[in-house]
Design a protein around this nucleic acid. Structure first.
Lengths: 143, 143
DNA sequence: TATTGTTATACTCTATAACTATA
DNA sequence: TATAGTTATAGAGTATAACAATA
């Protein structure tokens, strides 16, 4: 049985609330990215590279994008001095991507900006409610 | 004081949880859209048109996109038989956009597919937890 | 043979700027 | 003058297909 088959009360409410929250968050992230002259995808890649030095193929897997897409993305990021490509010492085919010094300084700035923009959204929740929200989201995500 | 200035404990946790959830949701929506040969933006526009017949300018405001972007978007959607443009009777400059019959049949299919894909995500939450999550998200969003 | 990465190509999304028509 | 919508243009993001180099 799929959800088409029934009225599914609170399930559609949950779907709608999550979708609304996601679009709202994406708008915030897109805005913050734009203020730093980045696209949403570039922002995401920088976030991934924050504590990793993956290969191009790894990046494709992480993001769910094609390797060719990652090539273009990293091309443009490298041109802007945000990332570097280095040959993998263990596999002559692989290329490892890492943040440059300046990008390493940029990322915390961006996450701080995101926090600031999210505050109005979560401002109507008490500290206790915020903690409960964290717990619920984390539990759902870690499944 | 901005969040750069302090360690801000659970606030960064909340930010990360919301961002993670949003990227996960966007991946789900993008996948479902792709299965119906739609982009994420087209999916979003169909959702907006579900219970409204806005002008092009309204659509631009709702989505935060430029009017010229909406023009192209609606062009392509119309070409695929998803939407129609009709002249606004009260303002000769305005154009109202509405779903076609076939799109009206398509939208519930898509929302059902989204519900189904979200279920594994929320499956580890009890009914009570799901209801609490709805309440918290709604409270945050309606601020 | 299989995998990694790049390139070529095509299409969608997006914004800016210039334009027409209506208010 | 101001607003609604379109068009032209340009750049980013994306996928598919073909390719070279390495495993």
């Amino acid at each position: 049985m799929t959800s088409t088959d029934r009225a599914d009360g609170h399930l559609s409410e949950l779907r709608d609330a999550l979708v609304r929250m996601s679009f709202t968050l994406m708008a915030v992230l897109t805005e913050v990215a734009a203020e730093h002259d980045l696209s949403l995808t570039q922002l995401r890649v920088l976030g991934i590279l924050r504590d990793r030095e993956p290969t191009m193929a790894d990046l494709a897997t992480f993001t769910g994008l094609e390797r060719s897409t990652i090539s273009g993305l990293i091309d443009r990021a490298a041109q802007r001095g945000l990332v570097t490509r280095t040959a993998d010492p263990h596999d002559g085919r692989s290329v490892r991507v890492g943040l440059t010094e300046s990008a390493h300084r940029l990322v915390p700035e961006i996450t701080a900006a995101i926090s600031d923009r999210i505050t109005p959204l979560t401002g109507r929740l008490s500290i206790g409610e915020q903690k409960r929200l964290i717990a619920l989201l984390t539990k759902a995500l870690d499944s």
